[in-house]
Design a protein around this nucleic acid. Structure first.
Length: 608
RNA sequence: GCCGAUGUAGCUCAGUGGUAGAGCACUCGAUUCGUAAUCGAGUGGCCGUCGGUUCAAAUCCGUCCAUCGGCUCCA
């Protein structure tokens, strides 16, 4: 429309929305807004105690210890109170104080959480207070705006309430968190809300239902998705794609059961370190239950693949051995953690375990990373971050010694540095048996999810006493690499749906082509084309029984990539009038040519 | 698991104490139609579950189940 073509290519209506970390101004606004909110809450709820109120990338929150949780009405009242505070034009004053001074002042206003924060602050760091006029102050590092009048009440919105544990520790007090957002201008707030609503349209749960890809059933159970015919197509296409890549790279497929004796997991360490995440043991009787002589659903595939490795004596000549399986695992996730396809209780890992000599470790690791990046590229996944998930040296929840861990962590760090990848290190994110290189994606709600992963493991080979015969005839210990480019099919497809906004590329679309008949009399002609396409592996079908406009609408809503209109002219000239979701109407093309192009595009996994 | 919200037809939703509604979908009939909704009729709900309050409950209260937003935890 009017705003379309500008000489400089810029849309004058475009409102940029920086993330907080990218804007000093937003940092100030959100810090101050957070203080104003806390002051408002304490005015309305005098017994509420303050804790922390940091900014987030899209807004800020503040945690309160309050006897009741805040209601929608409370939020409205709090917002009103905030507006009043802003109107008072209170100066925001920074004051640097000594630790003793701060402690005394906190003592005076009876804020135990604040005292705990103060006590945890590193010695030597300056301690600063920020005052809102002479009415309210909080311990805060800043920065802030200079006066509350610099906040625009119409650019602030309180969004939601939630429970949150003090210090993120579920054993501690649960606090009441208010999520809110604040911007420079009302226009920015409006734009933020618009984008949020827009993002929600891409939610994989909504699109999954609309496109008929998967369902859940209360009778089957929470976190256990059921794949419909269309969803099953997407799954198997992804499987076939990865399997083909793996064949090129020397992987061998294996198949293993879904349950095993508890003994297997005792040796692997899962029984001691992962039991809470496993479904309870199935035992024949009470005696077996007490003796832990039962079976469990597998939470991981590694111990099974290890058994295949161990089933014969291996030679260094065989290594590396790469065993791959789309292995379905079951994990007992807590009820509140479940959601859509991104967090489920039964899921399929595109798992593989590589048994390598120490000499082969680095090159095999690099090959795996290369595979993962190749896969992401083909799936057009770009918005990921690489995370080095190392162990938390303070925590005791890991198996194996320091030397082994250091060796594994260094191997990973060296590899990503060699590749020149952008990465960040995350202590405490490792698996219990080894460090990982994880690939993290964001969903429409900006939540981060781990998809692909590579792990270096010296521990399980020890625990299972794995061996191979070396060149010198002596028994040697292999190193294991655990890896899963997709992570899990469920989570991957959830993320893909959102990345594509439901518009699967041609090769992944459940229905690739629909031939829309202008009237019923053209169905036989359409059918002959459909048969040609099906015979060559293109998922095509006939659309009829409605007026053309309706058929187009239905196909558009189902996000079918290619529509072919069939009427008198097309039948007469042996053509098809092509309309694609991406490019709209392309006009009449020879039917033979269309069939050939579709077959080729499908085979090469490119667009029509 | 914890805090909070929600649950009405296959889907999206209206209905706040007095005999359950709409649109779409579905079925049937008419229409044979040219690129995002042809017209008409019909089918369809133990109002998530169990219990309570009441002369009377989709509606008020409680329980459980599920979903959603967070926290914790994770592929």
């Amino acid at each position: 429309m009017a705003a379309a073509a500008q000489p400089n290519g810029e849309n004058p209506d475009f409102i940029p929305l920086p993330r907080t970390s990218e804007s000093e101004k937003l940092k100030c606004i959100r810090h101050t807004a957070s203080h104003v909110m806390a002051m408002a809450v304490q005015k309305l709820f005098p017994t509420a105690q303050v804790t922390i109120g940091p900014w987030t990338e899209t807004g800020f929150y503040y945690d309160f210890d309050n006897s009741d949780s805040f209601t929608e009405q409370d939020l409205k009242a709090i917002k009103k109170e905030m507006d009043k505070i802003i109107k008072k034009k209170l100066p925001v004053i920074r004051e640097e104080v000594t630790r003793e001074d701060a402690a005394q002042r906190i003592e005076r206003i009876q804020e135990p959480y604040k005292l705990e924060i103060l006590n945890d602050m590193i010695k030597g760091d300056p301690i600063t207070l920020y005052h809102l006029g002479d009415e309210w102050w909080d311990l805060c590092a800043g920065p802030h705006v200079e006066n509350t009048s610099m906040l625009n009440p119409k650019a602030i919105a309180l969004e939601s309430v939630a429970g949150a544990y003090w210090r993120g520790d579920e054993k501690r007090q649960q606090l009441q968190r208010i999520y809110a957002t604040a911007w420079e201008t009302p226009a920015q707030l409006k734009e933020y809300k618009r984008r949020k609503a827009e993002a929600l349209k891409r939610d994989h749960r909504k699109l999954g239902k609309e496109l008929g890809l998967f369902v859940f059933s209360d009778l089957v159970g929470p976190g256990l998705p059921l794949w419909t015919p269309k969803g099953a197509i997407v799954r198997s296409l992804l499987e076939n794609f990865l399997k083909a890549e793996q064949v090129k790279r020397g992987y061998q497929g294996v198949v293993t059961p879904h349950i095993a004796r508890t003994d297997l997991f005792k040796i692997s360490g899962h029984w001691d370190n992962y039991k809470e995440d496993m479904f309870p043991m199935m035992a024949d009787d009470e005696a077996d239950r007490v003796a832990e002589q039962g079976f469990v659903m597998k939470p991981m595939n590694c111990p099974f693949h290890i058994q295949i490795y161990q089933s014969e004596l291996r030679s260094y000549r065989e290594l590396p051995i790469r065993l791959a399986e789309f292995g379905t695992v079951y994990r007992y996730e807590q009820s509140g953690e479940l959601g859509g396809l991104t967090r489920v209780r039964g899921f399929t890992v595109d798992d593989s375990h590589l048994f390598v000599t120490p000499d082969q470790l680095e090159s095999e690791f690099l090959n795996v990373v290369d595979l993962i990046l190749t896969v992401f590229e083909k799936l057009q996944l770009k918005n990921f971050r690489a995370r080095l998930s190392f162990r938390d040296p303070e925590s005791g929840k890991y198996i194996g010694g320091d030397d082994v861990w250091n060796k594994a962590e260094n191997a990973i760090r060296k590899a990503v540095q060699h590749l020149g990848m952008d990465y960040f290190e995350a202590p405490g994110e490792a698996a219990f048996y080894g460090p990982k290189l994880d690939f993290i994606f964001r969903d429409v709600l900006e939540r981060e999810w781990q998809l692909g992963t590579v792990q270096v493991d010296y521990n399980l080979p020890d625990r299972f006493d794995l061996e191979y015969v070396g060149e010198d005839g002596n028994r040697q210990r292999p190193v294991m690499i655990h890896r899963a480019p997709f992570g899990s099919l469920e989570r991957l497809i959830g993320i893909l749906i959102e990345e594509y906004a439901g518009d699967f590329p041609l090769w992944l679309a459940p229905t690739q082509v629909r031939l829309l008949c202008v009237s019923d009399e053209f169905v036989p002609y359409a059918q002959t084309i459909v048969e040609q396409l099906l015979a060559q592996g293109v998922r095509a079908e006939v659309g009829t029984g409605e007026r053309l406009g309706k058929l187009v609408r239905i196909a558009e809503k189902q996000k079918i990539p290619v529509m072919a209109v069939v009427g008198a002219q097309e039948q007469e000239n042996q053509t098809l009038s092509i309309r694609t979701r991406a490019a709209g109407e392309l006009g009449a093309l020879a039917a033979d040519e269309v069939v050939q192009r579709l077959v080729t595009a499908n085979r090469d996994r490119v667009d029509f």
